[in-house]
Design a binder for these strands. Sequence first.
DNA 1: ACCTGAACACCGTTCAAGT
DNA 2: ACCTGAACACCGTTCAAGT
Lengths: 219, 219
Amino acid sequence: MVQVRRGDVVAGGLELLDAEGLEALTTRKLAAHLGLQAGSLYWHFPSKQALLEAMADQIVAGVGSPSPGGTWDEKLAEFAHGLRRTLRAHRDGGRVVAGSYVTEQNTVAVSRAWVQALRDHGLAVRDAAWGGFAVFSFVLGHVIEEQGMAELTPEQRSAKSGTVLPDGDRPDEVTAALVDAVLADPDDRFEFGLSLCLDGLRQRHTSTAARTPDARKAD
Amino acid sequence: MVQVRRGDVVAGGLELLDAEGLEALTTRKLAAHLGLQAGSLYWHFPSKQALLEAMADQIVAGVGSPSPGGTWDEKLAEFAHGLRRTLRAHRDGGRVVAGSYVTEQNTVAVSRAWVQALRDHGLAVRDAAWGGFAVFSFVLGHVIEEQGMAELTPEQRSAKSGTVLPDGDRPDEVTAALVDAVLADPDDRFEFGLSLCLDGLRQRHTSTAARTPDARKAD
DNA sequence: ACCTGAACACCGTTCAAGT
DNA sequence: ACCTGAACACCGTTCAAGT
């Protein structure tokens, strides 16, 4: 009936992902969802993997563009929050992006835009690229853990947190800290980790600036 | 012939993983590899997912135990390097661990041992647990990216790095920095990111100690 | 340019039955 | 306790043929 285009397949894939999760995302179900026969997707994509990469690229595009004002560390925090938001906006979003080494259009554009913004707001361009990469890794790893935990059923959740507790009723200090960290608000844990990266980069930036005081006007 | 035990299935799964990769890791191939019929694995594990979780737990166990001496920041660096080593020791190791929220025996034991070590070497126990979690997230995300890139075929690799380069022959500063970061030695990128986390935590530790100078003898 | 229809070589999982 | 044998309901992918 209505013809389907590449972008429709990607959008349909994300719908199916959100509705049923990554394991249930099947080329056949997606085809049916789009009103097509099983093999028809292979006119649009050479493989399921290619489809997943396009979906990952679409997810990453959801990071958005850097806002105009502010300092470089505000930009980097904004990037981290935007990436976390868009990964969490789709069921198994972390694993989808983790499953495909994305160097497609949107991902490249997003990378360039944010590194550019970091540089324009005073960070050395090398620290911008490497720091951005480090923050990307942290956010990806963090969201994967968050979503992995969130998808446990309540029974599994309680069974597993039971694993952490020792036999005695009075847990030792380390165990208590572990339980606290696992059960804490993911937002708080995320902010903690992100602030480590930001503080580390701020320290580096300061010491670099101290060693070569006129680096910024020497470009 | 020879009977197979749970541990043999996990070990065989890791062999097959290393030999053929995650996509080719099939319950049927694994059964054949162990000299069994297709359905026999389901006596040992309730599902393929449970098998993958046991494999992930086995991989995480490869982190090993903290060495005796040193400072807390040396311990945390040691943990990060150990985790990266063991994830990289198996093909798709990052994605296997990412794919299962592991709270099995080994993973819990490893967590406890390292948080204990961090605490024993002077880090506040809460910072030990939360900082360990942050470093875990960073390492996992980083290794996933590393392995994703490493598994591209040479043709894909060159095709993709071409995507980064603009049409003109003279790339701008930001593009050059991006290409540099992507093509850099993964060890260097890892150390950069890890040092951000460590510096951030050191800074936090110092400022905490400054505010409450006798926190360490008050335990 | 985009899709159907039918086929191929697989999957994960279950379960009665065997030893 | 551990495994076989056979089945069930699916998969991803290909490709001649249609429009």
